[in-house]
Lab assay of single mutants.
Amino acid sequence: KLATQLLVDLAEGCHTHHFNSLLDIIEKVMARSLSPPPELEERDVAAYSASLEDVKTAVLGLLVILQTKLYTLPASHATRVYEMLVSHIQLHYKHSYTLPIASSIRLQAFDFLLLLRADSLHRLGLPNKDGVVRFSPYCVCDYMEPERGSEKKTSGPLSPPTGPPGPAPAGPAVRLGSVPYSLLFRVLLQCLKQESDWKVLKLVLGRLPESLRYKVLIFTSPCSVDQLCSALCSMLSGPKTLERLRGAPEGFSRTDLHLAVVPVLTALISYHNYLDKTKQREMVYCLEQGLIHRCASQCVVALSICSVEMPDIIIKALPVLVVKLTHISATASMAVPLLEFLSTLARLPHLYRNFAAEQYASVFAISLPYTNPSKFNQYIVCLAHHVIAMWFIRCRLPFRKDFVPFITKGLRSNVLLSFDDTPEKDSFRARSTSLNERPKSLRIARPPKQGLNNSPPVKEFKESSAAEAFRCRSISVSEHVVRSRIQTSLTSASLGSADENSVAQADDSLKN
């Protein structure tokens, strides 16, 4: 292990032709098999893994070397290190390495390699500790012929580059190093199909959405987006994914797998022009299946994007999809995704031109529960009313008269009656009930004795009459309010007539 670390330190600071010789020695160290011998017992696995620490030291050392060589000349050094790393990870899946030390190597290698970024000039870069990406002036992410390196360097940008540029090249004859992302992409596909350690798979799935944002990485080298989509959909639809995973937390289920895969599918929607129609349908189907899991909100957001990006695919699945959405409970976490999906859909009339009455009724059935102001915040309630109004205007004229009683009944049950079921009123009724029952229970537990009763009969009569009056008032709060309003209006009217009579009498006395 110490000798391997010494080789790594020497290679990191070497800029001459001896660098390749040092890498040859490190490569021989990495070539050791990580498969346990067949006769190895389970209690000896930890000791055997400790004997392979030099392999881990070599791989982690290459990660440090690549981070240094990416910004220094010659660029061919970075290319050689990158290829060695990718080849080593491929061996893991070729020979099915399952030892804990092998999983640790893959975890740290993917953690580093999935941080690679590219700008519009195809320059590769890595983020620093502050998250700012520094791009290399010597390494690009696409394949290029050595003699055409300078031509590639002087080509115009596709868009303004992001991030601070690296140091300027030493001279005009500098050759750019090619670090094609397709090599890593193929290893990522192998990981999605064969990885057995949940920690490694979770890391890859968590980092892929951010990497897919940099389309330069994908399009400048032959990366098959179709295969990526197929691998992701197979993970969700195939039963073998959960069987092969180990190291998963207790209670791990298909729902947890959906939570990890759906963000990658959402990021892949922007590549729909490069996906086969069959793959697009598979993607939409997987998102529909996710509606029954805890990732339902993410799936609804993804389907909203699909309705804009892939209208030809979503239009066929939309009638059944809208009916499925009615089975989702009206909760605060689902309110905004569902209502925004319906609001977006209302502005795309070509998608729902074939809707029948059942689909329009489903839209109103989804939106009406969110009009309850005692359960949802003001934004959700306003958005629900907006969706109902928009869809009522957009639905066909023959359907409107049939939906009017349905909508008014839903609004009455969710908006008007919600004020009668407020917690304050319920607590008031509970308190009044307890007050009504309390005197009775006290009389049963403690019967009054005439000799020891010091309270006069008049006081008892007053208290009983007050309790009886309170019971009468607490029967119905709404009736009490109505009666008080009527009494107030009658009182004001009587006072007004009394004032008029007094004024008339005063005038008569003055005349006399």
Rank of each mutant, 00 (worst) to 15 (best):
A231H: 06
S155G: 12
P165Q: 09
L91D: 08
F185A: 02
S87C: 09
W198S: 01
N128L: 07
S196N: 07
C223Y: 02
C233E: 02
Y143M: 07
S234G: 13
Y93S: 00
P172L: 10
E151A: 09
Y138Q: 03
D54V: 02
K94C: 10
L73V: 09
L189W: 02
E145N: 09
G166F: 11
V140E: 02
Y214W: 08
R80T: 04
P160A: 09
G238H: 11
L188I: 12
F219E: 10
L73H: 13
R117F: 01
P157D: 12
P74M: 02
S224K: 10
E147N: 10
Y214H: 10
V140Y: 08
S221G: 03
L184H: 03
G149H: 14
K94Q: 09
S211E: 03
L184Y: 05
L208E: 01
V140L: 08
T220S: 09
G131V: 02
Q67Y: 04
Y143C: 09
S221W: 01
H88F: 00
I218C: 04
Y143W: 12
L205Q: 00
H77C: 05
K152P: 13
G125M: 03
S182L: 03
S221M: 02
C141K: 02
E195K: 00
S224E: 06
F135D: 02
Q90A: 14
D197N: 05
I105K: 00
E83V: 06
R207N: 04
Q227F: 04
R134Y: 06
L158C: 14
R244Y: 04
A231V: 09
S136G: 02
V81M: 02
G163E: 10
H92E: 01
Y181A: 03
S104I: 08
L203P: 02
G163P: 11
C139Y: 10
H95G: 07
G61T: 00
P249N: 14
V187Y: 00
S234F: 05
L158D: 11
M144T: 09
V187A: 10
T154C: 13
S104C: 10
D130M: 08
L52E: 02
V59C: 06
P239Y: 11
I89D: 00
D130G: 06
S182E: 04
E147G: 12
P161S: 07
V55F: 01
L208R: 00
Q67I: 01
P249I: 04
T68E: 09
G177M: 05
E83S: 12
A173W: 11
P222D: 07
K56L: 06
V200E: 01
G247C: 09
T154I: 09
S237M: 12
S136C: 01
D226A: 07
P100T: 04
V59D: 01
T98G: 07
M84H: 02
C233G: 03
F252V: 08
D197Q: 05
S87N: 12
F252W: 06
L158G: 13
S237N: 09
G177D: 04
A78V: 08
R117I: 01
R207I: 03
P161H: 13
C233V: 06
R123D: 01
L62H: 01
G247E: 09
L228F: 05
T241C: 12
S237C: 10
S51P: 04
D142Y: 04
S136I: 01
P100V: 02
A248M: 11
V204N: 00
S150T: 13
S136L: 01
E195F: 00
P157V: 12
S103H: 06
